[in-house]
Design a protein around this nucleic acid. Structure first.
Lengths: 335, 335
DNA sequence: TCCTGGCACTCGGACTCGACGAGTGCTAAT
DNA sequence: ATTAGCACTCGTCGAGTCCGAGTGCCAGGA
């Protein structure tokens, strides 16, 4: 019986603290009347919650604030919240007229940062094995060439390669014809085998290996993984809840793709609908005061979209927004 | 004759304030001995400088700090500073093995943010009119297609278009052949005329206009202008000199491409080697506590690279770094 | 067994007050 | 034109004080 009320007390503390950014005391909770018990009873519950490590008091004569564990417990027993109708409409109108993948990602990240008032993060979908549709080589000066690979799933990879020693125009044109003839329509092991053979041919141009590598890589899934973010100002904004010194490291972590990608991968592995990392659960010193809410999108849950903010964030709202944007992104990306 | 010394006093104040982040007083300057006069004399000069609006005191019993005007005067009479040898090497090694334009820009912006310890900004070069090398269309589902345009100057533009009503495979293939035949090798008015004619042909596919538009746009100079930035954490870092509340608006302005682009355009018009906007000179409320140092790069000074930081920044060092990176970028981009 | 009212206690925040000292402007002397 | 000296201003810092929010605990009541 008291177990259930204690959950309610925790919930009230989390909600109160998130709303006011100030420690919440037993009196305030009792006055709110939503619990229907006196402050003394609440105090007793608080003592137990504190013993369980779910809440803490910053100093003796202050109210309680949730610990990371407290937020965790709060989040775990949270029922999915519906997204406000206005936000749903916003998602539709914002994303519907995007023209390409870049555009979709760009718009999504901006939208999500506005919906959540947090820093939004979108990982570019990591694409699957795909056949090669066309390879284009464009000479740039005597020593370089641009390689453009168009895959069957509408990706475009490009890269500049060095030609090394001078290559005659004839040899260049011949190489272009040959590599197209060799690679077109193939994928996977077949593609790799065919290209390796082509590149190893006697009398082959010296840069054939570089082209072959790029083509294989493009077929595999293209460019390296990348995340973009938007809404950094939400971190700095008055009352975000991050102390002055804490936000620089967070910005560093955001620009440091590697850190963020590893974290997102870990979260993807959990396989929940939306997954949440709270404070120290991020396992990153720089992010120890922040939480991340993320959800996978795309076929095979190929990539993640998320929102990052102070641990004292509005979890239900953020989770709803992230979930909704992820769903919408799935629709757009999977077509 | 005191005129010259007053300049020296101003310079000393700027340098002192930039170094210590604290108002500098007459005594401290006199003790530094670089001026060779007593504190009383310096006080007199300070009074005049203050009257001229070049310095101010935060409160009665504090030293002086430079005003925007003071920084301006300091900057205007600044001789070009040489970049430290280590930094020069860094530029070479960091940028030399970039593989494509994206990579160049990305590396540049990171490098510059590290060299200056400010927020670095790089505008994508706005490219010139160019001939069309190849047009590729890839069907995506029944209703969409990806258009890829490769220009002679090695740019790749891509865009998804809606096909509208169903298009047969034959019609699709025919359109691809035709548009290639029509556009290849052309540019400018010729290209536009030819494509308009093609799109207007009787019995043409309904999406021909969309393709034509995109091709013309790609020939003109491609995608819209864009700036990227890096090193946002430098704004937030301890002792950056921005008060807590000021940095959120700055981040907003950075993400708001439009604002930044307009400012950069204005600066480009000034035509100096490196151009500097100090505080209120940016004409943006959000940036009124920051300065921007920018330099054009690329053929015809096509785009800008810059660094943004608090008005109390190290102007000589920043200007040297920006100048150097701009020069290097020019070399890489103009090949 | 659980809840409640009451009470003593703790402790951080805000506020006051005064000493201190950095820095100034002015004046008279060189 | 420069300097030394001096009176004055005013922000910062530390100590001391007060106040009240919030707690823990206990005894009484359902």
């Amino acid at each position: 019986m008291s177990e259930e009320r204690r959950r309610a007390v925790l919930r009230a503390i989390v909600e109160g603290y998130v709303a006011t950014h100030e420690p919440v005391g037993s009196k305030a909770l009792a006055d709110a009347r939503s619990l229907g018990v006196s402050s003394a009873t609440i105090r007793n519950d608080m003592a137990i919650l504190e013993e369980e490590g779910l809440i803490a008091q910053p100093h003796t004569s202050a109210g309680r604030i949730p610990t990371d564990l407290g937020y965790r417990s709060f989040v775990d027993q949270l029922a999915a919240t519906a997204l406000p109708e206005a936000h749903k409409r916003a998602i539709g109108t914002f994303l519907s007229d995007a023209v390409d993948l870049n555009d979709v990602v760009e718009r999504s990240v901006r939208l999500l940062s506005q919906l959540t008032r947090q820093v939004a993060v979108v990982q570019y979908p990591s694409l699957r094995e795909s056949a090669i549709r066309r390879i284009e080589l464009v000479r740039m000066g005597a020593e370089h060439a641009l390689v453009v690979v168009v895959s069957a799933d509408a990706r475009v990879d490009q890269r500049t390669i060095a030609l090394g020693e001078a290559t005659s125009d004839e040899a260049f044109e011949r190489a272009v014809r040959e590599v197209n003839a060799t690679a077109l329509g193939l994928s996977g092991a077949h593609l790799e085998a065919a290209l390796t053979m082509w590149a190893a041919a006697p009398d082959q141009v010296p840069w054939a290996g570089a082209v072959a590598d790029l083509v294989v890589q493009a077929a595999r899934g293209g460019t390296v993984e990348r995340v973009v973010f938007a809404g950094a100002s939400n971190l700095a904004r008055q009352g975000s809840g991050l102390e002055a010194g804490t936000i620089a490291p967070v910005l560093d972590a955001l620009e440091e793709q590697v850190v963020l990608l590893r974290l997102l991968h870990e979260m993807a592995a959990e396989g929940d609908d939306v997954s949440v990392r709270i404070g120290a659960e991020t396992h990153h010193e720089a992010l120890s005061r922040t939480s991340i809410v993320a959800a996978a999108y795309g076929r095979d849950a190929a990539a993640l979209v998320g929102a990052l903010g102070p641990t004292r964030m509005d979890y239900p709202g953020t989770m709803a927004a992230v979930r909704a944007v992820a769903r919408y992104l799935s629709k757009v990306v999977e077509l």
